[in-house]
Amino acid sequence: CHSECLGNCSQPDDPTKCVACRNFYLDGRCVETCPPPYYHFQDWRCVNFSFCQDLHHKCKNSRRQGCHQYVIHNNKCIPECPSGYTMNSSNLLCTPCLGPCPKVCHLLEGEKTIDSVTSAQELRGCTVINGSLIINIRGGNNLAAELEANLGLIEEISGYLKIRRSYALVSLSFFRKLRLIRGETLEIGNYSFYALDNQNLRQLWDWSKHNLTITQGKLFFHYNPKLCLSEIHKMEEVSGTKGRQERNDIALKTNGDQASCENELLKFSYIRTSFDKILLRWEPYWPPDFRDLLGFMLFYKEAPYQNVTEFDGQDACGSNSWTVVDIDPPLRSNDPKSQNHPGWLMRGLKPWTQYAIFVKTLVTFSDERRTYGAKSDIIYVQTDATNPSVPLDPISVSNSSSQIILKWKPPSDPNGNITHYLVFWERQAEDSELFELDYCLKGLKLPSRTWSPPFESEDSQKHNQSEYEDSAGECCSCPKTDSQILKELEESSFRKTFEDYLHNVVFVPRKT
């Protein structure tokens, strides 16, 4: 048989008469490798580009789960590009990614509803959504962080984005990388972005840091009482949809009607710091009717980097990364020049730590249904340095008659930039024990000054392991946590139920 035959053949030295091919099969003959313009397919066939392209389009058009959109890589027609490569849609070739590779997620039936953290986790790592997304989240724990972890990498949506009755959302900033909504599939009414009845939605994105392009379709905003109209108009300008909307697409009466839409800028007039305090004062603000001013709200939190936005980490279910302080308005003076500047002394802060701070007014709604208010920009203030805590785990070892090696770990709280350490030492008198000992005694162990690591005695271990207080009263049991108490109650309830079950099964009433 021919060298490319495997198993047997019907005619000697003829690659077209093989029972099976050793390498690849091409047009009725066995070959060692697939010549151009053919590609290896499933490690035994040679196919042309049209064959591989037909497989790709067949799966793409069917949208069946589990099928493969075949691509070409290293002269092979394979189910998908290997790690580190992405497909070129024009020629199906796998090309190296520039940075992290995109991950295209194809949605069944063309859309997916995100109504819980669990459903959001199914899209973790996706960068391109081939379909439409509907966000409908009523509640949950730590929602802002969970949504950002699972949806934060999405850069492109081919269909539309719909935010509907998501009472738990305060902001859409968890879509931190969303840059493009194509609108290839539109919501009824030709809408590519749809926001309806979101009672706590206050911000779409921080438009000073976020760009969003909507290729096709219109915007729809109705019944978002805490979303200011200025935020919607800003989205029109940034996304390129200005002029597409009709009169009733953006409701003037049901958007922002319960919001404090600040239209003035508060400026800080005085800032002073110490290692654990920050004193702030800002310019006074009074609405047209000074009785509408209820006070100020001061927001602050630790910020290692200057990239904080107002609604980071917030949701309507209680999660809030900001510390909020309510401040009463100052006494009002008739003389504008003698107006008191409101302020606040922030206490209990960490030394040498940068804080993000902003302040906003708290006002009631005027009778004319106009909203007044003022808010400052987010500023960054760093507390002063102070003395560091003591170095940890000092170790001293003498390696000769004239040297001592000293080692330690950095302090747990540096409280500033540590530039150097101060080492103090003092000579001590020799131990009298060394002169009084009889060095001729056998088995004498000389006193040693070398360091030995501390260890816990058996008594201390027994005390720590004991669940009861000892007789001397030195140790006591740790208080039980809520989960331990709940577990004990469940076990007790189970024992009672099981005992009742045994009584009912074992003891049967005697027939009379």
Rank of each mutant, 00 (worst) to 15 (best):
A144S: 11
K103R: 11
I378M: 05
V363D: 04
S171H: 14
D315I: 03
F299E: 14
A303D: 10
K277T: 13
W408I: 15
L172R: 00
N190A: 09
G256L: 10
H341N: 13
L265A: 09
S274L: 13
A316V: 12
K350P: 02
L252S: 11
V324F: 05
L406G: 02
Q382W: 05
K409N: 14
Q403R: 09
R370K: 12
S401I: 15
D393M: 15
R165F: 05
I404A: 04
L219A: 07
S166W: 03
I114C: 05
Q245V: 07
P388H: 00
Y191L: 04
I114Y: 02
G343C: 04
N200S: 05
E155H: 10
Q354R: 04
H210W: 09
Q403V: 09
A385P: 08
L298I: 07
W322Y: 11
C261H: 03
H233R: 07
S208N: 12
N141W: 10
E109T: 09
S166T: 08
N340K: 08
D197T: 08
T386V: 08
D367N: 06
S333D: 11
L204Q: 03
Y355E: 00
W352E: 01
P288L: 12
S116H: 05
P287S: 05
I404Y: 03
T361L: 07
L201E: 15
W286L: 07
P388R: 00
V397H: 13
A356S: 08
L147A: 14
P284E: 12
G243F: 15
N334L: 11
N198S: 06
I134L: 12
E148V: 14
G373S: 04
Q403G: 13
G240W: 05
H210K: 15
D393N: 04
L201C: 06
E109G: 05
I134D: 02
K209G: 07
D384C: 09
R291K: 01
N150Y: 03
A195P: 00
L153H: 11
N263P: 14
P304K: 03
Y167R: 11
C317S: 02
D249T: 11
S402T: 01
N190V: 06
R347H: 15
P329Y: 01
L293I: 08
F299C: 02
Y194C: 11
G295M: 13
L201F: 11
T273P: 05
E246D: 09
L169N: 02
N320A: 09
A259W: 14
D312M: 12
S402M: 05
G313S: 12
T113D: 15
E237A: 05
N198G: 01
N340Y: 12
Y372R: 02
N399P: 10
D115T: 12
S321A: 13
L107S: 10
P329L: 13
K209I: 10
